[in-house]
């Protein structure tokens, strides 16, 4: 086996969380590190010119921060916040937002309603902090009327959310940012590029020295034993509940919630990693698999995708 010349550590953490850092590595890869979307981000370039790489990295970070600012539900000025505060009135959105909503609508229908960008209101009851605070079933039931993308009036460019409902692009946004940043960098740079935002990644091609070696953290051992994968082209995304679950009376409550009941999907895998044509596609497949619970593996086999499922 080749030496892992172009190794990517999906579980990489910056040593001292620098805002932006460029590093020429010994393996002929220039790495740019920054933080966006509450995740450590890295951009790996098969390049020698540190200055040029730094500029590409800067453009990449700008794009990531732009997407974060525009779509983060935590930022009051984001389009998502504007929509969520609209109290039943229509909001006119730009083309990029419209494309994301279109995508979410498509996924909602393909998953027969299980994937739903309006499910975020359940967070009001569910705090997946590793504790045993399982919510009151009545409180969960009270939120159900506020969930359901079918209640949203979406007629581009106008979205009308019934009062009290909210949307968020969790499960889409970060993967979207990875693909966008990859496209942006690959447009200006001829060599191999890999974009990794906290474990969701995509590459245009393998470096000359061989495919990217990607280490995926195993949820139960946290950074100890890793799955080592090879990636030549496309995206890789992981959905898991390593740090986001509740444990009560020996029952593990996953953060993957069933929008129909408001309760966690039973028997979800600890983590699902999927390789696909793009990070967005890999991400949605991993999410769909998690929603299948005990049927995750058979679902993934049926889709004919490369995947790694850990229970």
């Amino acid at each position: 086996m080749r030496p892992a010349r172009a190794a990517v550590d999906a579980a990489w953490r910056p040593p001292h969380a620098p805002e932006f850092e460029v590093l020429a590595r010994e393996d002929g890869i220039i790495a740019v590190y920054f933080t966006a979307m509450a995740s450590p981000c890295e951009l790996l370039l098969e390049a020698t010119d540190v200055h040029a790489a730094g500029q590409l990295g800067s453009a990449a970070a700008q794009e990531a921060w732009r997407i974060e600012t525009k779509f983060s539900r935590y930022r009051p000025e984001s389009i998502v916040s504007v929509i969520n505060r609209s109290q039943g009135s229509a909001v006119a959105v730009d083309l990029e937002t419209a494309a994301l909503i279109d995508y979410a609508a498509r996924c909602h229908s393909l998953s027969q309603g299980r994937f739903d960008i309006t499910s975020g209101v359940l967070r009001r009851c569910w705090k997946f902090d590793g504790s045993d605070r399982v919510p009151n079933p009545d409180a969960v039931a009270a939120l159900l009327p506020l969930i359901g993308f079918e209640k949203v009036l979406w007629q581009a460019p106008l979205i009308t959310l019934p009062a009290g409902m909210e949307i968020d692009f969790g499960g889409i946004g970060k993967e979207y940012a990875v693909d966008r940043v990859l496209a942006l960098v690959a447009e200006q740079f001829a060599g191999a590029v890999l974009v990794n935002f906290g474990g969701d990644l995509a590459t245009n091609r393998a470096p000359a020295a061989g495919p990217w070696q990607v280490g995926v953290e195993r949820p139960d051992t946290e950074g100890q034993a890793r799955l080592l994968l090879e990636l030549r082209r496309g995206g890789l995304a992981t959905s898991g509940d390593t740090h986001r679950f509740l444990l009560r009376d020996g029952v593990r409550y996953s953060h993957i919630l069933d929008v129909r009941t408001g309760w966690p999907v039973p028997a979800v895998p600890r983590s699902v990693t999927v390789a696909a044509g793009s990070c967005v596609e890999a991400g949605i497949l991993a999410t769909f698999a998690m929603l299948q619970g005990s049927a995750a593996e058979s679902f993934l086999i049926e889709q004919g995708v490369q995947h790694w499922c850990l229970r």
Binding site: V82, S86, S89, V91, A92, V93, D94
Partner: peptide, 9 residues
């Protein structure tokens, strides 16, 4: 002229 704010009709 896309609007990134609320529009009421």
């Amino acid at each position: 002229h896309p609007a990134r704010f609320r529009v009421v009709f």
